[in-house]
């Protein structure tokens, strides 16, 4: 297997142009899938026998939670690659992922609270799942704050990458918190077996998961292009690109 394509991604002009070409390939399918998921989740799926229509919050809550974890994974792994191999493009990717992940961690907490009030009788409980997700949001905010605190970009990259890598430990904690500790939060979604969600509920959820994932990649690529351009503003290829 040849890794040439991967090594080429470390080149800022190649990364900038490739990202630009890929955005539409992720954005349009994402829009179609999210609309289809909304129709399935809000209209076609039947009400839950215990939670009634309140369970429909899951169609935005669970994909948002997935994005908050996925973006942290991208940020932590890219930060680690940037630290070990000193690849500037990896740091740019990590920096681009942080605001997206933070915004969806916030959405997860807000929609979770709105689901918790009618189901648990409270907007907030210091439950392992909720607390670890809040900690994830604080990690994102800490990462962005740390980056902003340095004037020197290289020092900002290195310091924030260390935080991103260390914070990776929270990702499995968020995911397995409902297994490891007693939790008010329901367990992980069951796709197969006796406790599986019926297809009429599960298919729209899967469609939303896929739609949200493609959307996040499209937005990540848009942010990455801006980040690369800011970092490379003195380079010759940027002059050709902006047409000066």
């Amino acid at each position: 297997m040849t890794w040439t394509w991967f090594h080429r991604l470390a080149s800022p002009p190649y990364l900038y142009r490739t990202a630009g070409r890929l955005i539409a390939w992720f954005a349009w399918p994402a829009a179609i899938l999210i609309v289809a998921g909304l129709i399935g989740g809000l209209w076609l799926a039947p009400p839950d026998y215990q939670q009634g229509d309140a369970y429909r919050i899951i169609y935005v809550h669970a994909p948002s939670a997935w994005l908050s974890l996925m973006m942290y994974g991208v940020m932590g792994i890219a930060g680690g690659i940037g630290l070990i191999w000193r690849i500037k493009a990896a740091h740019a990717l990590a920096a681009s992922a942080a605001p997206i992940g933070a915004s969806f961690a916030l959405v997860t907490l807000v929609t979770g609270s709105l689901w918790g009030k009618p189901m648990w009788g409270t907007y907030w409980a210091w439950d392992p799942r909720l607390t670890s997700e809040l900690f994830l949001l604080l990690l994102y905010l800490g990462y962005m704050g740390l980056r902003a605190a340095f004037e020197d970009l290289q020092r900002a990259d290195r310091a924030s990458a260390v935080l991103a890598v260390v914070g990776l430990v929270d990702v499995p904690i968020v995911h397995y918190s409902v297994v490891w500790w007693n939790s008010l939060h329901q367990g992980a979604l069951v796709f197969i077996g006796r406790k599986a969600m019926p297809p009429s509920m599960l298919i729209p959820l899967m469609v939303m998961f896929l739609g949200f994932t493609l959307y996040s990649v499209a937005v990540l690529l848009m942010r990455l292009r801006a980040e690369v351009l800011n970092r490379e503003r003195t380079a010759r290829w940027v002059r050709e690109e902006v047409g000066a």
């Binding site: 009400p47 009634g52 229509d53 309140a54 429909r56 919050i57 709105l114 689901w115 009030k117 009618p118």
Partner: peptide
Amino acid sequence: MGGYYPFV
């Protein structure tokens, strides 16, 4: 929404 509109 089955009465859950303030949350959904």
